[in-house]
Design a protein around this nucleic acid. Structure first.
Lengths: 231, 231
DNA sequence: TCCCATTTGTACGTATGTATG
DNA sequence: CCATACATACGTACAAATGGG
């Protein structure tokens, strides 16, 4: 029997019984000592856990438990179902970071502005039942909103814009795709590369105008989220 | 710069220039010698190619090239854009197979019928520009349609139903997700496991009734298709 | 800022097991 | 049975990231 597979299974059981998501496994060196094998063999075993999305490696820190083995049966019911049109008005989002950036060519095109202009970037993360499920990058074309926006912490972005700036937004377009997650998405959503993310790109106009005020890209864990379209 | 990454990139270029899908790379030992590195380092480089779906390992035989690197640049423009609501009415679909099957519990639930009943299954594949992009499984709850349906070869299913059976369907629900492709989807869409598929599940009622007449599951290559939602 | 201990990441070397033809 | 080629496992060393003093 392959050593790394038996170790991998033992670690799975350990995780189930003694660890919680967010915990760090013992250092590889210690595990190697405990199992009486070389550190490479432990690494190979942990590779399996990483490939199965159970564990995430953090250089210099350790190997973090993402979730329990019995929880990672994908696509077996118990999905969350989101509404496709609620983007930006989600009440339970939390701001990860917000800053002024210069618009890339691509972003400028989406926002209908000239490249190199300053825009506001806002990154929010949405949890449900304590699990991060969706990360959204909002791009706002009007840098004059910055003094107000930088105090936005959590809740509904569109609600905040209305309250703080008397601005109302109207959906102009919605595009829908899927792809393998970026490294940053893996980190924020606590997944690994094998779990696709669904991506929703929306453009929102200022109400009563046809200028694009906001462009947002949402990435949702495809193993936990399913969207419904309203008819 | 990390050695294994530069080797991996060199191998990608070699594959593009000198290898065809189905070819075998030189043995790892030879590559190690050629690059002046240890065999483990070559293995690590090939791991990257395997993870990107470029190469498959065959113990005792060698490492087989699956496809060319330039084919797998994902999400770099030149997407096809589909409309989310056109399912079943696609004119350019081609029937892969059609048959009478017994409904599983899951399908019965979706169709609102009892399990074990006979239903019609229709599998269609949609090409665009010669590339298979979307495979759809249609399930029709009324087996009496079978004599007519079994002659359906290509075109719009909903159009055919209207012409041949005077039946009109109306969308009742649309659900949207993404996941890694099944083996069958890999085969039909000519992709490998690293390319996610977007899945659209729809339920269609008989017009003027609320019985579900059709349940369909569409799987589209997420690297080539983006859907737009009409407002 | 800098140093240091800890921990993961990369790279080398060697040996043996296992599948293929 | 044999040669070839990939798979696993041992060992060693140093690089790179992290966090605390």
């Amino acid at each position: 029997m392959k050593v790394y597979l038996t170790i991998s299974r033992q670690l799975e059981m350990d995780i189930r019984d003694y660890f919680s998501p967010g915990d760090y496994l013992p250092p590889e060196a210690r595990l190697a000592e405990r199992f009486g094998v070389n550190r490479h063999t432990v690494r190979r075993a942990i590779d399996e856990l990483v490939a199965n999305g159970l564990v995430q490696r953090h250089q210099g820190k350790g190997n973090m438990v993402l979730r329990q083995p019995q929880q990672y049966r994908l696509h077996e019911g118990a999905h969350f179902t989101g509404c496709l049109l609620e983007q930006g008005s989600l009440p339970s989002s939390q701001v990860i970071c917000s800053r002024l950036v210069t618009a890339s060519d691509k972003l400028a095109r989406e926002l209908g502005i000239e490249p190199e202009q300053k825009i506001i970037q806002l990154q929010t993360l949405r949890h449900m039942e304590g699990i991060p499920r969706c990360v959204i990058n909002h791009y706002l074309s009007d840098p004059q909103w910055w003094p107000a926006i930088k105090h936005f912490q959590q809740g509904s972005l569109h609600g905040f814009l209305k309250r703080a700036l008397s601005v109302e937004l109207k959906r102009e377009s919605t595009r829908l795709g899927a792809r393998a997650p970026s490294n940053e998405e893996c980190r924020l959503l606590q997944i690994n590369k094998s779990v696709p993310v669904m991506r929703i790109k929306t453009r929102n106009q200022l109400k009563g105008s046809n200028r694009i005020a906001e462009y947002s890209v949402s990435s949702a864990r495809a193993d936990l989220i399913e969207y419904v379209v309203e008819h």
